[in-house]
Write a protein that binds this DNA or RNA. Structure first.
Lengths: 134, 134
DNA sequence: AATACCACTATACTTAAGTATACTGATATA
DNA sequence: TATATCAGTATACTTAAGTATAGTGGTATT
């Protein structure tokens, strides 16, 4: 699929594409969604498991972000009435498909570092808050 | 390239991939980078042109974000000593390659809306600050 | 009897990100 | 003479995002 194939001929991209971009950015929005999705790509997990694997996240943030991901159709939440309760979080089929986006990001990132390594990428300025220790 | 092909067999992704993901997220970080990159995909532009096309951006934000993109090797800044000065911003080759990432985002976003339209995607909760009127 | 586990929530706080408004100085146009 | 344009910068402010710390109730372990 080549969305920008005839880029010279157009000046705007269709509204549906802008919405699609928005939804995808939204899926990864904030400091913690990417590591959470990343860890869930390796299989469904319980709350405490995610908390342990996504280092330095607080339960407040984890809870909030999981809720976000749930209402956005990216993870499902299943409660088992064991004692104490177990709650499992799992990526939806749509959520699992995010790995394709992540792969294209990894591809770009690797290439970008390669082509810029000679120059000044030590000067890469990162936003202050970004975790991402998958 | 299938990074997660044997996902069952691994529990972590390599550090270089995490850095690559970080760089890519960084390229799009904040409310304004995506629309700026988006508009520059249609060709190089002057400061005021971008300011007009990326609606509601303030010169302060535009200046700041363009600087970010420049030090990160995504745009170049060229000054012509006309009167008054003209300054042109253009995507680097690496910057232009971001369209591939954007395409994969659009693909995912479109699919995600399709598979979730029956359910509750009116409930899609967006972050407060997001512009994206490309 | 005291402590630990689970999956969170509550409150208060700090830091980051974005906005509003005004201004620069040299030149061009009305 | 007054106003507009270019590419921004300066200062002060508001809003969003993230952190720190403590606590919930029910069960299980030491």
């Amino acid at each position: 699929m080549k969305f920008f194939e005839k880029l010279e001929n157009i000046t705007k991209c269709p509204v549906s594409y802008v919405l699609a971009l928005q939804d995808t950015l939204n899926a990864f929005h904030g400091k913690w969604k990417m590591p959470i999705i990343g860890t869930l790509l390796f299989g469904k997990k319980r709350f405490k498991e995610i908390e342990r694997e996504v280092r330095k996240i607080t339960p407040r943030m984890l809870s909030q972000e999981l809720k976000d991901l749930e209402v956005n159709g990216i993870v499902t939440r299943t409660v088992y009435n064991t004692t104490p309760v177990t709650v499992e979080y799992e990526l939806t089929p749509s959520g699992r498909e995010l790995h394709l986006v992540m792969e294209s990001m990894i591809t770009w990132g690797l290439q970008h570092r390669q082509t810029n390594i000679m120059e000044n990428l030590p000067a890469l300025n990162m936003p202050k808050q970004r975790a991402l220790e998958i």
